[in-house]
Nucleic acid binder design. Structure first.
Lengths: 232, 232
DNA sequence: ATGTTGCGAGAGCACTGCTCTTGACAACGG
DNA sequence: CCGTTGTCAAGAGCAGTGCTCTCGCAACAT
């Protein structure tokens, strides 16, 4: 079987795949993830439904492709913010990456819901999603690591870390590939989950009838959580 | 139309409704919210699908009923924790209600995903969900208010609150029905969204391959966020 | 005893994901 | 240049979905 990507066939194939994903994404913002219909995608492309199965073995596989794209999009948004802020104070950098993540979420709420909302029922995330999924949090952690090196982060532990937590943090440390003390790693994880918690709570409408100026509210809460992260 | 609840007809009706919700809940944990099928519910009850429409006008309406039940369940779990901890130190009480919320979420992950996960596509939360939805956060806020009265909470503002944020916080304050300063209210909201962020992140599997002892990890992070909430 | 009303059954519509077969057409090797 | 090969879209079809409608029947109220 020829895996040569230069043959016109292979090229037409990747183009078709991109077309399908584009139509699926467009449909996603209209009807949400459960409403995503392979037949509707095929209709939009002026093609019969079975033709789509040449490119995606199932609806779930198409959804997985969209999920990976989503992780990559938010990941590169975060990475860009990190790269663009090199040399600036750590609190500013953290806020920059947090803002980037939220901006992306607000601009692409359906993709955000797809990756950070309820997991699709019965569906198990394939292994090829985990590496893209790590990009955004890794970028955020890199800012904290730089901050530790620059002396911007309080590193003395506030409370002793229990044995099982230390073991888990060690595992995570090995996964992310650079050193952060238990204390700082735990604070970073809290800041990250807190960030997503804020974004989800507002984006999913739980603060409707409460917050009108979402940008200002986010910015104010971000200032607070950044201080907590860096240890003042 | 007789709204008399004592007639045997009306009683049979509420029983049937309970049966349907029970079957729907059972199906929910098996196939998730998008997989919830009215026909399957009818099958389980040994009844034809159209019969279910006598009790719920649509699948969405059935889902809404389950959502309300979910809010009520987590709300009463939180309220129980608050009531059971009257008189204890504020940090302990906050941790108790946080634990109660998480325990409920872990025991009922599908209900949790239903209410705090991605909103169902295209579906607008009816007005009768908002009051049940407020029970849990309100119970948590009540602990903080008691803590302020007891002098357990640092109340001096860390940073000035911008005008638009103050306006929104005033609106929220009016909604919850008791007084909390801008500073304390903002900290409470951050603690609440942070709690849900942690629960969601772990429950939705984003920390798989990382955390093995989820209880210990939660407890450790909770100690930290509680300190941030109370201002040390 | 007699309306009235709520209820379940059943048929039916338009839609879904997915499978299988069929025929056409483009790319390749001799 | 011509046959072989592989890829593709089309179409029919299956089982399932939400939802609507009509039709009898049985329980209720009077």
């Amino acid at each position: 079987m020829p895996i040569d990507p230069s043959t016109p066939r292979a090229q037409a194939r990747v183009e078709r795949i991109a077309e399908i994903k584009g139509a699926a994404r467009r449909q996603l913002v209209e009807v949400g993830s459960d409403g995503l219909s392979l037949r509707a995608v095929a209709r939009e492309l002026g093609v019969v439904s079975s033709a789509v199965y040449r490119y995606f073995a199932s609806r779930d596989e198409l959804l997985t492709a969209l999920i990976i794209d989503g992780y990559d999009a938010v990941g590169s948004a975060a990475e860009d913010a990190v790269a663009a802020s090199v040399g600036r104070p750590t609190d500013e950098r953290w806020r920059a990456v947090a803002r980037a993540v939220r901006m992306w979420a607000v601009a692409n709420p359906h993709d955000y819901a797809l990756i950070y909302g309820s997991p699709v029922p019965g569906y198990q995330a394939p292994a090829d999603t985990v590496s893209p999924a790590l990009r955004a949090p890794l970028a955020a952690m890199a800012v904290v690591r730089d901050g530790v090196e620059a002396g911007d982060v309080e590193v003395t532990p506030a409370s002793p870390v229990p044995r099982p937590v230390h073991a888990d943090l060690t595992r995570i440390r090995a996964g992310i590939g650079f050193d952060l003390s238990d204390e700082v790693l735990a604070r970073s994880l809290a800041a990250w989950t807190g960030l997503l918690g804020h974004i989800s709570y507002v984006l999913f409408g739980h603060l409707r009838n409460g917050i009108t100026d979402e940008d200002a509210f986010f910015e104010h809460q971000l200032a607070r959580s950044t201080a907590d992260l860096l240890g003042r």
